[in-house]
Design a protein around this nucleic acid. Structure first.
Lengths: 249, 249
DNA sequence: CGACCCCATTGATATGAATCAATGACTGCC
DNA sequence: GGCAGTCATTGATTCATATCAATGGGGTCG
């Protein structure tokens, strides 16, 4: 199989990961990859439609307001999606990582900007070409509907967080969610790698840097998390963290 | 054409409305009706799959956490969709009105509850039956993807509002959005009918009743809006309202 | 018609998070 | 290895909104 094909898969073909996906029900729900259901011939066709790209840390590869001519699929790395107000206030509306599809939430122009948090690899698909893909692979359209529906669920959770949760609850929710997303099957107390800065965390949670820092300190003082250097955080009491994130006390 | 067919249309067949839809580009973007593209025979088939229902003011017809077995299409009236925290904090994640499709944002269980703000009429579709509908009318699946994408755009706007806007900006944004939605083609200074209470407005905007009231008072004092009785509000300076809602000053 | 109730408004006060400010930790660079 | 720059933490203070409290207005019902 030519190397090109891997660019439309969710990531490198990893037997261990595929195995764990079948073993772990949680994974199944989240990993709505675009191309998992296609055979090699179909993948080859899709690969012809995709354009491979990379972006460095800090590089903006989608700009809010630009004509929405392309969809994106992240092959490696993490990026932030955000909206700005004219005076500089910023809301990060989501982080996207390996396997995530970007660009569904667009009318004629993009409703958000996207910037790489670390060096990333991604594919670009012309919207016009994707129409043809839909005709050929209805399964892809089905998948996209699932992806969009799931993103809506996430977005609605985030509305609850931004509208009604306290600072500590927001930070706890984020950590809990990131753990579920990044390592749903791993030991829940294993250290997490957060690719974003405090500032980005603040812009995602509707808080300031200082408040995020204080909320983390509060969780640390209760021995619920352990904060390491280099953007690493270990969750010492996952159950307590989840309880706080749901305001269940 | 049997009466039943109308239940799967977006609303009563209204020649004036259809005409304005072709005349007004704004309408086109918003009115992503489920069945507009179908002919009468197809509509008849769909009508067989739909179950007609009604709900009175205050009646909850979707409960968060219940198995998500059905989709809904609102035929008449307005409802609120909301999520609650255990201690009673509530976030309204959206209002749905005539023509709106409800239930896309659901995994195995509903992620929100729904309650009628006034007497409503709606259709229910079994998720399992809708699978068959997709096979027969791929156009419907396409439409649903458009609907979901557009809802994502709205949700992301709301995240910006909840995370970063001030109280006055939130209220201005809501009024501006509601006007665009309820009467996109009408005189922008015409009086609006708001079917929700201040309490529901507060739960939608992440504020309290009192703060909503004060923000409205502030807009009234600047002669930007005029607040009537019986949930009616007129926008006197639409341009100023929009400017405030975007924090463009 | 009057009593009651619900909702909205407005005022006084409290508070959680923002802002302002200082310090410390780590990183890259010459 | 020292210096500059960026990022994170912590403390002091301010501020926007929440909370508490009082009043009014409109509708319903006996």
């Amino acid at each position: 199989m030519p190397d090109d094909l891997s660019i439309v898969r969710r990531g490198p073909i990893n037997v261990a990961a595929e195995l764990s996906a079948t073993l772990c029900a949680k994974c199944e729900a989240r990993h709505v990859g675009l191309c998992d259901a296609l055979d090699d011939a179909d993948l080859h066709f899709l690969a012809g439609v995709a354009r491979r790209s990379t972006a460095n840390r800090g590089q903006v590869f989608i700009t809010e307001g630009d004509p929405a001519r392309q969809f994106f699929n992240i092959n490696h790395g993490t990026a932030k999606l955000y909206k700005d107000l004219p005076d500089g206030r910023r809301q990060i509306i989501g982080f996207v990582s390996t396997g995530d599809f970007v660009g569904l939430a667009a009318d004629k122009t993009y409703g958000f900007s996207a910037e790489a948090l670390e060096p990333i690899q991604y594919c670009r698909f012309d919207r016009t070409e994707l129409r043809g893909v839909f005709g050929r692979f209805p399964i892809i359209e089905r998948r996209l509907l699932d992806v969009a529906s799931h993103e809506l669920v996430i977005a609605q959770e985030q509305m609850l967080l931004l509208g009604r949760k306290t600072a500590v609850e927001r930070v706890a929710s984020f950590l809990d969610g990131w753990r579920n997303r990044a390592a749903p099957c791993a030991n829940p107390t294993a250290a997490l790698d957060l690719p974003m800065s405090r500032s980005e965390l603040a812009d995602f949670l509707g808080l300031t840097i200082e408040t995020v820092s204080r909320a983390l300190a509060a969780l640390r003082k209760q021995n619920i998390v352990s904060i390491g250097s280099d953007h690493r955080i270990a969750i010492l009491k996952p159950t307590r963290l989840t309880a706080i994130s749901q305001a269940a006390e």
